[in-house]
Design a protein around this nucleic acid. Structure first.
Lengths: 141, 141
DNA sequence: TAATAAAATGTAATTGTTACAAATTAAAAA
DNA sequence: TTTTTAATTTGTAACAATTACATTTTATTA
């Protein structure tokens, strides 16, 4: 779902009005695969929508998060990063760069699900299990 | 190691001068088990050290993190929280409250270590593996 | 096409954190 | 002990990211 039609549909489904700003923010979210900050999205979307306000970007991202069509992640640098929600995935935090990448691993998900089914944590019912892998990218990519 | 002597020793070992502020900050870090914010530490430590500056708390926590005797974690609320580093542990993020609790599970650690030994992620070498369990505490505790 | 609730805008406030210069202090040397 | 010196603390001000709020604009529905 990368075209305007489908995005509009998704917005309507979530009970949101379809506006150029929202469509553009969603497109930017889907374009960047490295968890953009609100500022990066603002810069990107501003090219198409000249008078765009920062506030709008923050509002829009917030709404997306509340509706569950985007995800907000806190980074160690103190900036929030955003993410379109697709399937379950984990995050790779690159040490040198501040990069955050998605990591999909259904096999691991199953392993964890099974593990916590057996093992109970006292009084805590996990709803979402996410791995936080800190490390380094080897030169290549 | 909860007494002044031992804390002082730990500071010296890390190549840090022993100051009342540092000792008090470390004591506060050890007293609170729910990952205090800099502000919480400031309030606590201010009681013993009246003229204490906010900046000192931030500096001190930063130094601790750099020396590896404390840990800084970014939260979804946009505030940093701090943590004395003991053994490897994971974090339980409580949905309702903004609480973050430690979760120790050596068995799980081994499971994960083994898993990533076999399974290679393309180009990424994990240094630290941390689980991020979001969920709810059941009434009791 | 008009009415209306929702959304976007701009500005200003707020919050958490950091930069920086000056004053103080812990530790080492005399 | 006293002196020296580099490290640490302090206070203030700056900063960056985010939010509050009042006003204007717009998408949707009737």
């Amino acid at each position: 779902m990368h075209n305007i039609q489908e995005i509009a549909e998704k917005l309507t489904q979530s009970g949101l009005k379809v506006t150029p700003q929202r469509i553009a923010v969603m497109q930017a979210l889907m374009k960047f695969h490295h968890h953009p900050t609100a500022e990066e999205i603002f810069r990107e979307v501003s090219q198409n929508i000249p008078g765009l306000s920062q506030t709008t970007v923050y509002n829009t991202l917030d709404v997306f998060v509340k509706k569950g069509i985007a995800q907000r992640i806190a980074t160690d640098a103190g900036v929030m990063r955003y993410d379109v929600i697709a399937e379950a995935h984990h995050h790779l935090y690159c040490l040198g760069t501040a990069r955050v990448e998605d990591y999909f691993d259904p096999e691991l998900d199953k392993l964890l699900r099974d593990y916590f089914e057996k093992k109970k944590i006292n009084g805590f019912r996990p709803i979402d299990i996410k791995l936080h892998l800190t490390g380094e990218f080897e030169e290549q990519k």
